[in-house]
Design a protein around this nucleic acid. Structure first.
Lengths: 184, 184
DNA sequence: ACCTGAACACCGTTCAAGT
DNA sequence: ACCTGAACACCGTTCAAGT
């Protein structure tokens, strides 16, 4: 039982650091958040962070992983009337962490750990999306391309400021399918 | 004439720094390129850069502006058979500077100057795209949303590694219009 | 095992001084 | 006007030392 108690404490303290990191990363930005700033927000010495995390990128991954788990749990509980509603829900959820999207893309070029997380994240999103697109009757030979367009559009909605009505319009257009070119 | 000669020299030297910066930003990345490294590549003292540029972001903007002008000049010279060909050409051109796309998105959150450049860039791309979509017969009420989807897809193609056939598929699907849902 | 004060190497930028 | 050597404030991370 002492073993168990110890790891429990450790997990709790680790979570406190992740709390502080998430708050600061979202308000001030990842790069703009100094490790000393994060440490003082968590009430510890700067170097203590390195007993819980490998480096700064490892803290970011912890924030991302925890948030992803929570959002995934929420997602699986929902039921949606149509694809537009489903898409809008996902975008609105992800919007809470939208500042981190660009951060992940930028750091994935330099940090292999972030690169790996980003790839795994895409595999997850694409698997979920593929199921829905198949169910919606998209022909097999188009699934791959359509799925990519959806993913890119979700990312675009997150990385660019859009009004609610713009988001609505875009999600709807994507769900209905882009009209054929000058044929009708 | 001395006046002219002087500004000519200045412009030339400034361009040499931009050359070095573009090379390093694309190979090593913006953040990973130290000002000292850039200075030594350009054969000057680190602080000399600051006589030609306000700060590091200002160097980035100079690289972006120069490359954008060159690509725009190329674009206007081209003629395309269809939208797929046009889209593929643009993506392939932009791919040469694709590492900078994520950099711009990330820094736009922190640096107002980069934010401004990014917005102006989007206005330009969207104006060009709008003309083509109108000519292709997309109904007016869908133009805005379709345009955003195209822009987001272009950005997605640049920020994620894709095979040539994936790119081809995606550009084609986007040009033909996304198939209706389970109706036919 | 857990935590720290002090230090390290590095960064973008500035400043006083030169021509 | 143009350029520099030296310094500044700051950064992520490490290390020796404590409990």
């Amino acid at each position: 039982m002492p073993r168990n108690h110890r790891t429990q404490d450790r997990e709790e303290k680790r979570n406190l650091i992740i709390d502080a990191a998430q708050h600061l990363f979202l308000r001030a930005g990842y790069e703009a958040t100094a490790m000393t700033r994060l440490a003082s927000a968590a009430g510890i010495a700067p170097n203590t962070i390195y007993w819980y995390f490998k480096d700064k990128d490892d803290v970011l991954i912890a924030v991302l992983d925890r948030e992803l788990s929570a959002r995934m749990a929420d997602y699986l509980k929902q039921s949606f009337d149509n694809m537009t509603a489903r898409l809008l829900w996902v975008v609105n959820q992800l919007e809470l962490v939208s500042p981190l999207v660009s951060t992940v893309h930028a750091r994935a070029q330099l940090a292999p750990a972030i690169h790996g997380w980003h790839e795994q994240f895409h595999r997850l999103i694409e698997a979920l999306l593929r199921v829905e697109l198949e169910a919606a009757g998209i022909p097999a030979e188009h699934i791959e391309a359509v799925m990519n367009i959806w993913v890119f559009t979700i990312e675009g909605l997150l990385t660019h400021t859009m009004t609610a009505s713009q988001k609505q319009q875009i999600c709807q257009t994507l769900s209905l399918g882009i009209p054929q070119q000058a044929s009708a």
